[in-house]
Structures are given as C-alpha cells and as structure tokens.
Simulated assay, not measured.
Amino acid sequence: MKAAAFEYVRAASLPEALREFGDSSNGAKPIAGSQSMGPMLNLRLARPARVVDISRVDELRSVTAVGDLVRVGAAITHAEIEDGNYELLRNDFMQYVASGIAYRAIRNRGTIGGSLAHADPAADWPLALSTLDARIELAKTGGKRQVRASEFMLGAFTTLLEEGEIISAVLVPKIGVSLRWGYYKLCRKTGEFAHASASAAFDAQTGLARVVLGALDGPPMALDVLAQSIAKQGPSAATAEAIAASVADAMPNADAIDRSMHEAVVERCLAQALGSSAR
C-alpha cells in the first residue's frame, strides 16, 4: 500500500515550520527521518493533507551547551550520536543507546525527536532519557515549554504534544565521569524491538538515582524504591528478591514470563552499573 496524496513542504526555519502546524486547516504533520511517519503514511494510518519536512531546520540540527545541560536538536539522527559527531554527545551512555537502535540504515535517518514523538513503548530514547531525567522542549507559534522526559509519554503512541506543537529539542544533563550506568534489552534478534528493557543511572555527585523499566504496555516505569535503596545501601540492595518485588509492583497484571524477562533485564543493567566493570 502507498500513501494517500499529500502536499510536501520543506521548512527552511523553525518559525516557518511552526506556522504550518499552527494553521490547523492545513492538516499538517512533521517529518524528519521518516522512519516512523513514513510507514504510517504508506499503511494509511496517517493521512495528513500536508507533510512538513523539518530535517534541515538549523535550530533542530544543532547541539549546544546550555549551562549544565546539553541541548540536542530534535532532528539529530541516531547515527550522528552513535558516531560521536558532536563533542558534547561523546559519552558512553548516549552513544551506547544510539548504537543499539534498530539497524544502521534506520539509525542513519531516524531522529531523536521523531522517536520520542512516535512514543513506541519498546523504543530506546523514551527509556534512556527518562533514566537521565532529561527535559523535552516543545515548540509552537505561541512559544516554547519544557516537560520532563519521564512525564512526556502518556501511553502507547500517546504524548503530551498539543495541536500545532512539535518537539524542538531534548535537554540532557551533562554526563560526568562519576555517572555509573547500565542499559540492557532483550530482543528476539538484533535490531528488533525489545520485549523487555531496563536502564539504570547513579551519580553520587548530582544525587541521580534512577532504575527504569521499558518495553511495557505504556510509558517507561521508574523503580524508585529500588533505586533509592541502592543509592543508600550500595550494590547489596540489588538482590533478586528486591528486583522481583519492584518489577511486580510496576507490572501487576503481567504474566510470569513477562515479569521474568523484565527481572532479567533489570538484574543485568544493574550489573553493568554497579559491577566492578561498570561503565
């Protein structure tokens, strides 16, 4: 099946793009890497009257330092993060996550903003950015606002985005040498969407302590009790019993196999973060 007819517009600037989205009569939708919207168009799950290409908008293609944060433009691709094209993003965690997203052909085109906006529960960036307590910058003709990454996704393929609003950037805390992290997912085969995933980050200097479950029926779920116990007591708090209890609380309606897979990814990502060979 091929897409229904639509008008194509390439935006030269963010204000130009926002004007297109602000006029609801256009029925406009943004497109950048086209790795999510493209299939939806071809399957006719989305039928916009106009598609606005934002892949070359300078403000969405820059990476800059903003105080103790790194502002990552929404049209930065997974491959650019994986390859370390931007000095501010040359850190183990972001590059590791980017390198495991789908296949290289998809990473070459797919963007960090597009992944977040699509809000697939099995996607990598919603989980990883929630773990880092990042912020998402949303823009429309009336101005910009920021929301926590952990609050942006409301459910499967459902977000806080309002009519006429797009993701313009992600604001990620600068990652220092004291950060200890883990990221693990179970896939049927390399490149496929995860059946279970988990991420952990601990930083004694900033007080960051996060353990987050991904690949659920809805948005990622933070295991706050487990994370705080580990932050206070150290690796000894990451027992099999504590992990199982936290996963059960987060997934009360899951079957035993699903819970078992999520327990396994939590255990393995904590081993990465807390073990002697922690990154």
Rank of each mutant, 00 (worst) to 15 (best):
residue 190 T to M: 12
residue 191 G to H: 13
residue 185 K to Q: 13
residue 213 L to G: 11
residue 184 Y to A: 07
residue 173 P to D: 01
residue 208 L to C: 09
residue 181 W to D: 01
residue 195 H to P: 00
residue 199 S to M: 05
residue 180 R to F: 05
residue 164 G to V: 01
residue 200 A to Q: 05
residue 217 D to N: 13
residue 200 A to T: 08
residue 199 S to W: 05
residue 211 V to M: 08
residue 216 L to A: 04
residue 201 A to G: 11
residue 156 A to F: 00
residue 211 V to I: 15
residue 197 S to N: 03
residue 181 W to K: 01
residue 153 M to V: 11
residue 157 F to P: 03
residue 190 T to F: 08
residue 185 K to D: 14
residue 181 W to A: 04
residue 154 L to A: 06
residue 209 A to G: 07
residue 155 G to Y: 11
residue 210 R to T: 12
residue 192 E to H: 01
residue 216 L to F: 08
residue 161 L to P: 10
residue 191 G to C: 09
residue 209 A to M: 08
residue 159 T to A: 11
residue 162 E to W: 06
residue 214 G to H: 04
residue 153 M to W: 02
residue 208 L to T: 12
residue 197 S to P: 07
residue 170 V to H: 01
residue 204 A to L: 05
residue 216 L to N: 14
residue 214 G to M: 06
residue 181 W to Q: 02
residue 217 D to L: 10
residue 167 I to R: 09
residue 203 D to T: 03
residue 182 G to H: 11
residue 182 G to Y: 03
residue 176 G to R: 08
residue 202 F to K: 10
residue 206 T to F: 02
residue 183 Y to V: 07
residue 183 Y to P: 07
residue 191 G to V: 02
residue 178 S to I: 00
residue 208 L to P: 11
residue 175 I to H: 05
residue 163 E to C: 00
residue 209 A to T: 07
residue 180 R to N: 12
residue 185 K to R: 15
residue 209 A to S: 14
residue 158 T to C: 06
residue 183 Y to A: 12
residue 165 E to S: 10
residue 218 G to M: 04
residue 175 I to L: 15
residue 181 W to L: 00
residue 152 F to Q: 03
residue 175 I to S: 04
residue 215 A to G: 08
residue 196 A to K: 11
residue 182 G to A: 09
residue 196 A to Y: 06
residue 159 T to V: 09
residue 183 Y to L: 06
residue 193 F to G: 12
